[in-house]
Design a protein around this nucleic acid. Sequence first.
DNA 1: CATGAATGAGGCTTCATTCAT
DNA 2: GATGAATGAAGCCTCATTCAT
Lengths: 198, 198, 198, 198
Amino acid sequence: MSELPRPTTARGEATRQKLLQAAEAEIGEKGYSRASVSSITKRAGVGQGTFYLYFPGKEDALRELVRHMGRELRHALSRATVGATSRTEIERRGFEAFLTFSLGHKNLYRVVMESQFVDESIYREYYQTLADAYAVGLRKAQASGEFREGDPETQAWALMGVAHFLGLRYTIWDHRVPPEHVMRTAFDMILHGLEAPG
Amino acid sequence: MSELPRPTTARGEATRQKLLQAAEAEIGEKGYSRASVSSITKRAGVGQGTFYLYFPGKEDALRELVRHMGRELRHALSRATVGATSRTEIERRGFEAFLTFSLGHKNLYRVVMESQFVDESIYREYYQTLADAYAVGLRKAQASGEFREGDPETQAWALMGVAHFLGLRYTIWDHRVPPEHVMRTAFDMILHGLEAPG
Amino acid sequence: MSELPRPTTARGEATRQKLLQAAEAEIGEKGYSRASVSSITKRAGVGQGTFYLYFPGKEDALRELVRHMGRELRHALSRATVGATSRTEIERRGFEAFLTFSLGHKNLYRVVMESQFVDESIYREYYQTLADAYAVGLRKAQASGEFREGDPETQAWALMGVAHFLGLRYTIWDHRVPPEHVMRTAFDMILHGLEAPG
Amino acid sequence: MSELPRPTTARGEATRQKLLQAAEAEIGEKGYSRASVSSITKRAGVGQGTFYLYFPGKEDALRELVRHMGRELRHALSRATVGATSRTEIERRGFEAFLTFSLGHKNLYRVVMESQFVDESIYREYYQTLADAYAVGLRKAQASGEFREGDPETQAWALMGVAHFLGLRYTIWDHRVPPEHVMRTAFDMILHGLEAPG
DNA sequence: CATGAATGAGGCTTCATTCAT
DNA sequence: GATGAATGAAGCCTCATTCAT
């Protein structure tokens, strides 16, 4: 009723993974509230009750999924930006990696977005964690003189907004516009701003 | 797609408005799936069955609400930017107006955000309409040489992303950071970009 | 969710009564936890959901039933003892009425007994109300010199215990021993005690 | 009816005892139907399946517990009344011992009371065994002229009713009234009856 | 002896929607 | 126009019990 029992055997761990994957697919496709635990267990090929051996309730599977997505995305961003020689380069590669990642994890991405309507704290935690890491990099780039001065946290949230909306619009909803095209315009704006020089 | 049958009497119109306001409060506070038609009618002070005299179903009230929010926001933006002397000025005032508006319509804003999980098309229509109008302005500013070249639609989506995320983070979730502070950083970035000049 | 809506129409009141009677039969026969809401509604000939139009939950039907039994029993005792010329007479008639009543309401009596394991307060209220009324009568009989001195509340509980156990043993469980026989022994003991005089 | 297979090793016996104690606590605290086998095994510190090595099912643990309580209570009563010089003395000491015992075994007592709703026969057996032993003593006291004539079995049930109700009311539910006070009134009534002499 | 993962029946409850008045 | 009683499908969750290890 109150404890969250973690499986102790390998068999248990496998079942847990099956459930998590099934939950990702089910919730990603139908949305959290239309997704049913019984469908999840059916997809996972286990009995209904088995779900509750691994999660205290439906909401907790969602939480788990969002945390998982957060970890995966951060890893993807790390991998993509390793070895970059400038912050500008990091931004570009990170942006690209984000779009690729979202496209490759549409379901999980939907799950993250919807989490805000189930328990806002899950969603806030997800983005705040990203923003914090992001702000660190921006602060360094300002210190080194590469980037213009400005509050790094605000910038981080603004940039996440750009990425989120462009990702939603141009990769998740409709990817007929070539990504390079979107990237070019977006990056020009992000790096040099809207105003024409002079 | 076709408009719902509208009431013909003044009394009917009043009931319809009461229901819409109740739906806004109920869905905004509890979220779409936790909101119930019976609570909505209770809030509106009408009988349960009355709801179905004005809306074919629960989803349709949501749809109506999103359209309503779209209209209101566009009016607010028009009003705010009328008489501006430059596109930069329009951007600034529009941004400000958007933040004020979201803050003043938290429930409605929540409803719009959640609509994507009920019927994506409502949500896409909402943003696409905004983006289209936005892009027209940006295109003009580019033509006049005030703004740098770039695909206006992409820019519009990117800018809406900035506004959405900053609004969510700094006005809806937590408005301890003063809006001027957020605005200053955001605008510097939007107009001149991240990179230091030279 | 929080209000307990009372029916406003005659039809509603009728449904409520059907449900209450069905609940009495169902819970009385199977016991509270083995009784199911769905069986209750089936017996009542209404849809499952209808139950929740009249009771916030299963427990509340039980509560209602116990209160009902309390009122009925008190009425029966009043009726039985009206016109008695001595407290001894009241005791005798009350005792008899109690046994008759329990026998005629086996199901309801079972429901009352079981209520203590669902929500003790229901059960305590039931007996405390009886005890309070009982003690008033005993106190008067002591004041008038008819009954020996002693704490009336304690006496009331003791006498309810006698009635309860004898009723359970000799009317509800097994009524092969003639009631007069039980009554004679019980009354002799209650009125004159166990000890032989002298 | 037949005894359950008992463990043959000392280790097994220890496990069985742990389970029984855990069941007493769990069922006593939560009530039979809210008590779960898995909680019992958790309390006992053994695996879930282990329960079924010692009991055919949940009900059987209850049965065992009631029998256990019966034995313990009878022993307590024997010990308390040994060496008493009159039946009156036996009554007094027995009554006192019963109250002390119930107070010291609240959980077990609750379990016994609830058993009637799980399997009435367990409960009836419990009280019938007590009543039979009780009646033997009462019959002797009548034969010796110490107690007034009357059907001993009826008297036994009546007296158990007194003890049960007073125990429930004044020790288990609320022991603010001093036991001596309750005992004095109760005993006066039991030994000499309600009616004033003369 | 002991374990704990797995099961699936079954219970409670919610709710969008219908309909007779 | 309006009502509110009624419905039944559907969902979440619990739990006694089984069984392979």
